[in-house]
Design a protein around this nucleic acid. Structure first.
Length: 218
DNA sequence: ACAAGGATCCTCT
DNA sequence: GAGGATCCTTGTT
């Protein structure tokens, strides 16, 4: 008689469903908050989103505010697509397009926590350890081995890069967005950055404050 | 065709 | 905390 198969010990929470296209067809700030705790999945690497920023069409911090260009065109399309661009000529930034077709808005994914595939992430990030691996949008792009050819990719379809439901965070933080000195004072002040409260996987923790828990109306 | 500047990261002090 | 990397995108000539 043969020996029983080795039982695989679950080292992480089970995979959750891919989010439907309709998830993205909402206001960009609402989707940004709702992206915390969701999971980016590619080739066995699973990352839990811990920090995001919202960028809206008439927001002077947003690439779309001066109108449509070849680079930002995907932001003007329907939600659920990736908008990927190169920053400072070397950093690959992943955004999630939101809203209806014709409106331009997207959420920049700034940080994530590795759930599966830590070894792959470490190999892509120079064998570093801890939050320095994935806290910052350029690091996230590197960890997922993305390039600008991914811009326009449909995140709600299986294969390639997927966005899964994950687990919602318990408490979240908010504050002004990072690295937008070129924007108007009004837009610089907007608290459109969101992060999970109880995690070390966040870039520049300064200037984040708790979001008061939503008061019950009844 | 050109110049300017950028939703950053890393290293060094 | 400062500065360089590194090159594409954009607006202007």
């Amino acid at each position: 008689m043969r020996t029983p198969p080795i039982t695989r010990v679950a080292t992480s929470t089970p995979a959750t469903p891919i989010l439907p296209e309709s998830f993205y067809a909402r206001d960009v700030v609402e989707v940004a908050r709702d992206l915390l705790g969701r999971e980016l999945v590619r080739d066995g690497v699973r990352l839990r989103i811990t920090e995001v920023e919202a960028y809206a069409e008439h927001d002077t911090a947003c690439h779309a505010h001066r109108g449509r260009t070849p680079r930002n065109a995907v932001m003007f399309g329907p939600g659920g697509r990736a908008y990927v661009y190169l920053c400072y000529g070397l950093h690959v930034m992943l955004n999630v397009v939101t809203g209806e077709d014709g409106s331009a808005a997207a959420v920049l994914v700034r940080s994530a926590e590795p759930i599966v595939g830590l070894d792959v992430v470490r190999a892509r990030r120079g064998d570093r350890d801890g939050p320095v691996l994935l806290t910052g949008p350029g690091k996230l792009g590197a960890a997922l081995a993305l390039d600008v050819a991914w811009s326009g990719h449909r995140l709600f379809e299986p294969g390639g890069l997927e966005l899964h439901a994950g687990e919602p965070p318990r408490r979240i933080l908010t504050g002004p967005r990072v690295g937008i000195d070129y924007a108007s004072a009004r837009d610089r002040r907007r608290a459109w950055r969101f992060a999970i409260a109880d995690t070390r996987w966040i870039s520049v923790p300064k200037s984040l404050r708790p979001v008061p828990s939503r008061a019950r109306t009844h």
